[in-house]
């Protein structure tokens, strides 16, 4: 079981690196926002898995709040880019 969790964290870390590269490279604001959305989803999954590793139930609540805030953030950025805000 420990090895499965190690492999999962390695995959997620690689994913975080790739989307962070896209977040830095751009080239437009939309690309950065897509990368931010992916970073948020990977972060939520990593928080839930960390909660299992540390046996703390609180991490799931944190993940839930992070998911809600990330979603609202992306919607707000999209409305701003559209010029409707």
């Amino acid at each position: 079981m420990t090895y499965i969790i190690y492999i999962a964290f390695i995959f997620m870390a690689a994913g975080l690196i790739f989307s962070a590269i896209r977040f830095v490279k751009g080239p437009t604001a939309g690309d950065r926002t897509v990368a931010l959305d992916t970073l948020t989803t990977i972060g939520v999954a990593a928080l839930v898995l960390l909660g299992y590793v540390f046996q703390r139930f609180v991490y799931i609540d944190v993940a839930l709040v992070y998911a809600v805030l990330g979603f609202i953030g992306v919607i707000v950025i999209a409305r701003y880019l559209e010029g409707a805000l």
């Binding site: 499965i4 995959f11 994913g15």
Partner: peptide
Amino acid sequence: ILIGSAFLFLGALGIFRMPDVYNRLQAG
């Protein structure tokens, strides 16, 4: 958990490789 982390990685790789913002959204 293994399947999930593999697909998370593939989504991030798709964002890295695809040529424009719509295709990145598709993969992501």
